[in-house]
């Protein structure tokens, strides 16, 4: 059963320079217990997708069309009060750099307690304490951490506590938005293990957002590659890595160094992503594309087409008619 279905989501930010189309026609779904990865470079719309799932986008961000069906309800249509029930107890999120979002003058345990109280006002103090101890146990923290202030913890410990906080109201879906960006490799490895363990124990669904395709390879069952607000390729993670069809996916793979296998010459991708202020038709990757050919036309309409079982690639109508 699908726990989440995002259909033709479009979102834009109103700015002084004009309207920025940050999310364009994004469609994907997530089964219960599945982990889904979203990968792409800065500004491709990964975080905007995550924020729209919780309706937490900045004030100037608006969903212009599309549906987000979570647990049978369309989140886009919910009012603020109904949204509060979905946030944290339905979908919770671990933000990028979330470890720095703790209130410095309140003990860690108290901050988690606050979230639980908000959603389950009837629970007793003892029940909440038990819950916090259980959560800390799951993420590998000692229960005494609850009585500590944020400055007393290391970066890795704070990030574990953030995961505990995200789990505090028994969500069904967790969004992890670059949860390990500011951490070094050994701590990153530990946090990734924790997330996998938590997902296993609690049977959660996971959306993992990262610019690091190696982390996506390890963490997810299915994945989407985003470029300039669009999903340009999606499918089972193994399939996408073995048969990358979109030139952008191929470039990402060719530019990722690895410590195993033969040392290969990596290929750089020149240029920069296009500005999203002006509306674009056609392939937005064409200006940087190493495989650009004469049939590439900026006026061609793009569409996600299934090229293999569950494997979709964004191609233009000229390619489709071939």
């Amino acid at each position: 059963m699908n726990i989440l279905e995002v259909k033709n989501l479009n979102m834009s930010y109103e700015t002084l320079e004009g309207s920025v189309a940050a999310v364009k026609d994004v469609t994907f779904s997530l089964k219960e217990g599945e982990s889904f990865g979203i990968v792409g470079e800065s500004g491709c719309g990964k975080t905007s997708v995550a924020m729209s799932l919780l309706q937490l986008q900045a004030d100037n961000g608006k969903i212009t069309s599309g549906e987000i069906i979570f647990d049978g309800k369309d989140i886009v249509k919910l009012n603020e009060k109904e949204l509060r029930d979905v946030r944290w107890s339905g979908i919770s999120i671990v933000f990028q750099g979330a470890m720095n979002s703790w209130n410095p003058v309140v003990k860690i345990g108290e901050q988690i307690r606050e979230a639980i109280r908000e959603h389950y006002p009837d629970k007793t103090k003892e029940e909440n304490t038990d819950k916090i101890n259980e959560l800390f146990n799951i993420v590998g923290l000692d229960s005494s951490i609850a009585d500590r202030y944020p400055h007393e913890l290391s970066g890795g410990m704070k990030q574990r506590a953030v995961i505990a906080l995200a789990l505090s109201c028994d969500p069904k879906l967790i969004i992890a938005d670059e949860p390990t960006t500011a951490l070094d490799v050994v701590i990153q490895d530990q946090i990734l293990n924790e997330i996998r363990k938590v997902q296993d124990i609690l049977g959660l669904s996971l959306i993992y957002i990262s610019h690091d395709i190696a982390v996506i390879a390890e963490m997810t069952d299915n994945m989407a590659v985003m470029y300039a607000g669009r999903i340009v390729e999606k499918g089972p993670t193994k399939e996408v890595f073995e048969n990358p069809r979109h030139s952008y996916t191929q470039s990402l793979l060719a530019s990722t160094p690895s410590v195993v296998g033969d040392k290969i010459k990596l290929k750089s991708l020149d240029g920069e992503p296009p500005s999203l202020i002006n509306e674009q038709i056609g392939c937005s990757f064409a200006p940087r594309c190493p495989n650009k050919n004469t049939s590439c036309n900026p006026n061609h309409n793009m569409e996600l087409v299934e090229v293999a079982s569950d494997h979709y690639v964004d191609i233009c109508n000229a390619e489709r008619s071939k």
Partner: peptide, 12 residues
Amino acid sequence: LISSIPIPDPSY
């Protein structure tokens, strides 16, 4: 340290 580096290959 070496064992903590993620590998860009889902089959690895």
